[in-house]
Design a protein around this nucleic acid. Structure first.
Lengths: 142, 142
DNA sequence: TTTACTGCAAACCGTTTGCAGTTCC
DNA sequence: GGAACTGCAAACGGTTTGCAGTAAA
């Protein structure tokens, strides 16, 4: 059984087949799925599951911090189940692929904010550029 | 006349009243407006201006790098005309207000990416937390 | 048995688009 | 004069919601 299900049960959630399917879909590394992607995969496990249920569940998971929301600016939200290990994102401008990257600003982040009376509770970095594949493809094209 | 209009003319744009109104709206520091916010303000200058024109223009400005897109994750895109000075954003979790902050990761950003074959062309940092006002309000509430 | 949860479908919101008319150069 | 631009309104894609039915505890 997935860790997520255990934690959801601990929080008093009813463990329905739908939630088990969603938890199963969200079990993995380097996962950045759109809501539609989650529905699609969840339907392989539980064909009848509805969009509404998936959206409801994802929103609740985000609200309780079990899942992160990644907004890449282009179109739909992406959901990132890797909420336990702080990390940032590499977004390929060519193919849209997203990779996780270790979080480490080496304590410099707070320095940036010295002159702002702003209480920082967290931060996220989005790196834009070209992934390995797209670099290779560009090199081959010219 | 705004600098932006000068640059747009230099790029061969036709300078219409609509574009002048939008340029006027986008003239300012620390501005983070939704498309609707731009329409609203532009209509004070040119009452008949349409959503479509504003969206078209904003998208073109973003595409040519004259305006930045800030995605806060919650709802609509925000447009940031401060494209000439690299900066990042402080987003208040309580009131949603956004402030610009000087960009300076002190050359550490590339270090984070050593083990990823990823060609970084840019990055942006979003700091989450509480702005001065919301800190004060919370302190007063308890 | 209770009440949280699900599925359907319609509504919603921000955004884009096709097209006919207008206007800047 | 002609291409670029505008405005309208309809369409669009992603997401939310109301409600009646279902099932977990």
């Amino acid at each position: 059984m997935s860790d997520l299900i255990v934690r959801l049960r601990a929080r008093g959630w009813r463990i329905t087949p739908q939630r088990q399917a969603i938890a199963l879909v969200l079990d993995g590394e380097n996962l950045h799925l759109s809501a539609e992607g989650v529905v699609e995969r969840a339907r392989r496990i539980l064909p009848g599951i509805s969009m509404a249920t998936v959206y409801n569940t994802l929103n609740e998971l985000v609200a309780m911090g079990e899942v992160l929301e990644v907004s890449t600016g282009s179109g739909a939200r992406l959901f990132d189940p890797n909420a336990t290990h702080a990390h940032h994102h590499l977004v390929c401008s060519a193919c849209g692929e997203i990779h996780d990257v270790q979080a480490d600003l080496g304590g410099r982040a707070p320095d940036m904010l010295d002159r702002h009376d702003f209480l920082v509770t967290g931060y996220s970095v989005v790196f834009n550029g070209l992934c390995q594949n797209c670099q290779a493809r560009r090199a081959a094209e010219r």
